[in-house]
Amino acid sequence: MRSKVVLGRLLHNRQARYGGIALILLIALAYIGPYLGAYDWTDKDFLAFLSPPDADHWWGTTSIGQDMYAVTLRGMQKSIVIGLLVALFATGLAALVGAFAGYFGGWVDKVLMWGVDLLLVLPSFLIIAIISPRLRGASWLWFVVLLAAFAWMITSRVVRSMTLSLREREYVQAALYMGIPRWKIILRHIVPNLSSLLIIDATLNVSGAVIGEAALSFFGFGIQPPDVSLGTLIAEGARNATGYPWLFAFPAGLLVLLVLAINLIGDGLRDALDPGSNS
């Protein structure tokens, strides 16, 4: 019933509609696009180094003859997967930590929030960058874990403060007075009632993670070669952006579009899930 209303409102929201269409097209491009191109991303065309876009290489080639179209889409796949995984982990962690801290209060709250404060003191970029030398040669999944591990703190504070008010809600008290264990109350009554916030947050975390990955990869602290992501491609392209703009323009443009589409959906979701909010 409620999901239908939300969906209706979401479809009514122009931002969300454009964002949704754009995202579907981008995902289709990332996952179906490679089958349409003539080259695989690992192929090297030794006859065309740094060739501008033409009929054969739609988006041109790199300095080692890779097909930019294939490589960029491959990079976008990786960026999307990283974004989704990070958002899932980060939001999940934020929900659990925030809800437990807010509901139990006392020393649980104090310890958890001190941890959050501590992690907030240093920007996540800095910490991941420091750890990154260790990650050379490790699986990219570790990178996902790191990004997620430093992306949940602010949400967990919001979750905590909302839990503090939810805890006083009468239906939560009613559950307590029925003799239902506290952890069950958190999972059954508190977290589901935060779902609007969490869905919105998860959406925005996807774009945050995509940007975060790209930012780290820009300095070589992220995804390591031979693997590619939008970030590594942009870093590569930026060096020669004036001479060979296609190396920079395609990954950069796709990154902006991807982030924009996700943000638009996130903002639309906020309007649809939270009828009290404006616009």
């Binding site: 409620r2 809600r169 009468e170 239906y171 008290q173 009613a174 559950a175 007075y177 029925m178 009554h189 589901p192 009632n193 779902s195």
Partner: peptide, 14 residues
């Protein structure tokens, strides 16, 4: 058992 004041807040909307 208890019956609360605000009938909206006393029932989990989900």
């Amino acid at each position: 058992q208890i019956v609360f004041q605000d009938p909206m807040a006393a029932l989990d909307p989900r």
